[in-house]
Design a protein around this nucleic acid. Structure first.
Lengths: 113, 113
DNA sequence: GCATATATGTCGTCTTTCTAGGTATCGCGA
DNA sequence: TCGCGATACCTAGAAAGACGACATATATGC
């Protein structure tokens, strides 16, 4: 079994996290679970990637954090999108789509005369 | 004009190069041009990215190089796909498509009840 | 003689991810 | 009660890959 979970593509994590947080404020642990669930187990986000990413996004002013009680009754750090974060997310999505399109052009290219 | 060319997504360059070489043996300089042209100027591949990538792909046994005369009459290093390289390319493409699908799931996700 | 396009390459830096560890609390079953 | 798995946070170090800047050389045209 060479069955290891999918590595993330460098640079996509920020967009994915912003998008998941846009679905509703959430804490780190839950964000990782959501990403895994929504992607049908394709993405497996490691804590060593996620927490630094959250701090990065907070530093940049795209996320804002508040300690609250989680669903299970413990303290957890809930992140929500700032206005800047929403803009950033939207531009990242647009860029992702353009990038996908460009990759698609390459992949569908055929030998020209 | 904040018009700088698109950064590559880390990890996609290998696939794109393999795919372009699959269109027909080509040398570094021409590979960069082709990538730019086919992607309609979206990708601008830097020399500092491309040449190390070509050496990497050659080391892995996915590309094979021969010095030949280029279209302009000079010596250039022509790369072509090996059998291993073709397999690698195909699996990378499959993986790219699965990854795109997974990202799509995230981007299209909506707040569930 | 010089700029530009062609063509290859290296080096140092930066960013991001992974691996591998650490802390702590809670609920559950043995 | 003891340990374990799940929940929840975190960091440090290493690896990878892309970038910018630089270096080199030849051919063509002005």
């Amino acid at each position: 079994m060479t069955e290891s979970k999918q590595e993330l593509l460098r640079g996509t994590l920020d967009m994915l996290v912003l998008k998941v947080v846009a679905l509703g404020p959430s804490h780190g642990y839950a964000i990782a679970q959501r990403l895994q669930q929504i992607s049908k187990e394709f993405f497996q986000v490691h804590q060593g990637s996620l927490y630094p990413a959250l701090h990065r996004l907070e530093d940049k002013g795209w996320l804002q954090a508040k300690w609250k009680e989680s669903e299970t009754g413990r303290q957890a750090k809930f992140y929500e999108l700032t206005r800047k974060g929403r803009k950033k997310m939207e531009s990242e999505v647009v860029n992702w789509e353009r990038l996908c399109g460009a990759v698609g052009l390459i992949l569908r290219a055929e030998e020209e005369s």
